[in-house]
């Protein structure tokens, strides 16, 4: 009675979970870097505390390492979109009538008016994923901009230095890096809720689909062409 539809490629699923772990690491190390709320090196001279404890230096090292992982996994994500049709589902097709029809139906479902027709991924989700990609890019650009400007003639400064200056300066870059980090966490909260909700209400295996790549539908989803 349920039809299995293969939605998420293996590359995408692996990327999703790497991205998840990276963002969690980046968020919590970033919070500490913004406001260092504990000290582990009391009793040590600063010179010797450096490599003995969970210090600012080590937490920054974690943050920057995770930043590199985020950058390269992001590039990988863009790369696979060129080769697999189903990996391009993050693009909101707002130039089509179906998109706006889907927005209406999904809004009606979320306002508890009536359920929407079966969809692989509703237009609101597509839009929010697209915005998340933009936010991740923003974090990469401002992050590597600030990281690289320790050496204004260096490689990273020449690649992403503009991100810092176009915001008005380094203070503003710190500020917006912080704000957008929280926006990504807000997305995370909504993402977990709406994915679970989808699974509960439509019984389509939404949660497990990010592990095994498969969703289940009784009727053919209206956006089936995105994976065919």
């Amino acid at each position: 009675m349920f039809k299995r539809i293969y939605v998420f490629s293996a590359s995408l699923r692996i990327w999703h979970w790497i991205n998840f772990i990276t963002i969690i690491v980046l968020f919590f190390t970033g919070l500490y870097i913004g406001t260092p709320y504990f000290t582990t090196s009391v009793g040590y001279e600063a010179t010797y505390a450096y490599d003995k404890n969970l210090t600012m230096g080590f937490i920054r090292f974690l943050h920057f390492s995770a930043g590199y992982v985020l950058l390269f996994s992001f590039l990988f994500r863009i790369y696979i979109a060129f080769f697999g049709k189903r990996d391009r589902m993050f693009i909101p097709k707002f130039w089509t009538i179906e998109y706006w029809q889907g927005v209406k139906e999904t809004s009606q479902e979320y306002l508890l008016i009536k359920e929407h027709r079966p969809m692989l991924r509703n237009p609101l989700a597509r839009t929010s994923y697209f915005l998340v990609y933009l936010m991740i890019f923003f974090m990469i650009a401002t992050g590597f901009g600030m990281y690289g400007l320790s050496d204004p003639d260096g490689f990273w400064a020449s690649v992403f230095g503009w991100a810092v200056w176009s915001l008005g300066g380094e203070f503003e870059a710190h500020y917006w890096h912080h704000i957008v980090a929280w926006l990504i966490i807000l997305f995370f909260v909504f993402h977990v809720y709406f994915v679970s909700r989808e699974d509960f209400t439509h019984k389509n295996g939404e949660v497990s689909s990010m592990f095994n790549g498969v969703k289940f539908f009784r009727k053919e989803p209206i956006d089936i062409n995105d994976v065919k």
Binding site: I185, L186, R197
Partner: peptide, 28 residues
């Protein structure tokens, strides 16, 4: 401060999500 607002927003979002979930269940 940004962190305070961020935490409030995150908690509010989580709370809103839970309430919305309950409302969905009741409605269903």
């Amino acid at each position: 401060k940004a962190d305070k607002i961020g935490a409030i927003a995150a908690v509010a979002a989580a709370g809103g999500a839970i309430l919305h979930g309950i409302a969905t269940k009741v409605r269903k």
